[in-house]
Simulated scan of single mutants.
Amino acid sequence: MHASPPRTPRLDTPARIPPLSLVLGYGPMLVILLLGIGAWTLRAPVLADAALVWSAAILLFLSGVARGLSFFTEGGPRLTQLATMGLRFGLGVAALALPLTLAWIALIFGYASLAITEPPAARHGEAPSYFAQLRPIQALIAVAGLVLCLLAG
């Protein structure tokens, strides 16, 4: 049996969130929040529908980000990276197919996974270092919007 290759954190990524990642990281989440606020305050189902489709699309994109990062992990993809990709992809697709209440719950779990899985992945070199700061705040913003959509029911 061969020993696993050593795991070293990626040193090629900054610890601070790059400016472009601030815009591209928080921008889509703010759209979810704004749609959630609108759906809840205006009781506008069209805004909730837009939030659902947008949120599912972004979650599906984030599943691809998880898979893409695995291609650059020293020693090859980790099971946690593949599981994260599968979870986000499955929840994103499920949100488009499930009844509304379950769809919102699937999306909430999918976005909450950002705060749960990404900081350890960043510390272990399986994601850029700045994901430890970026992802929990992204998750909080998105989940707030999704909860508002769920409540707008």
Rank of each mutant, 00 (worst) to 15 (best):
M1Q: 02
A3W: 03
S4N: 03
P6K: 09
T8W: 00
P9H: 02
D12M: 05
D12P: 05
T13Y: 12
T13Q: 07
T13E: 09
P14V: 09
A15T: 13
A15M: 07
I17M: 06
I17Q: 05
I17F: 07
I17S: 08
P18W: 05
P19G: 06
L20T: 12
L22K: 14
G25H: 04
G27I: 00
G27A: 13
M29R: 14
L30G: 06
L33I: 08
L34C: 12
L34N: 08
L35C: 07
I37F: 09
I37V: 15
G38T: 04
W40N: 02
L42T: 08
L42I: 02
P45H: 02
P45G: 06
P45A: 06
V46L: 13
L47T: 07
L47Y: 07
L47H: 03
A48R: 12
D49W: 05
D49R: 10
A51K: 01
L52T: 08
L52S: 00
L52P: 00
V53T: 13
V53H: 10
V53R: 12
F61C: 07
F61I: 11
L62G: 01
L62S: 12
L62Y: 11
S63H: 01
S63W: 01
G68M: 08
G68A: 02
L69E: 12
S70L: 01
S70F: 03
S70P: 03
S70M: 02
F71Y: 15
T73C: 07
T73I: 10
E74N: 11
E74K: 12
G76I: 04
P77M: 09
P77A: 15
L79P: 02
L82M: 14
T84F: 11
T84L: 14
T84E: 14
M85L: 09
M85F: 13
M85E: 14
G86S: 10
R88K: 14
R88G: 11
F89P: 01
F89D: 09
G90S: 13
G92L: 09
V93N: 01
A94S: 15
A94W: 11
L96R: 00
L100R: 15
T101G: 13
L102S: 13
W104Q: 07
L107S: 09
I108K: 02
G110I: 03
Y111Q: 10
Y111H: 14
L114Q: 11
L114F: 15
T117R: 11
E118P: 05
E118R: 15
P119Q: 06
P119T: 02
P119V: 04
A121G: 08
H124W: 11
G125C: 08
E126I: 02
E126P: 01
A127Y: 06
A127T: 07
P128W: 06
P128Y: 10
S129F: 04
S129A: 15
Y130P: 03
Y130S: 04
F131M: 14
Q133S: 14
P136F: 06
P136M: 04
A139H: 09
L140A: 14
A142E: 02
V143S: 00
G145V: 06
G145D: 03
V147A: 08
V147T: 09
L148F: 07
L148S: 00
C149F: 05
C149Q: 03
A152Y: 03
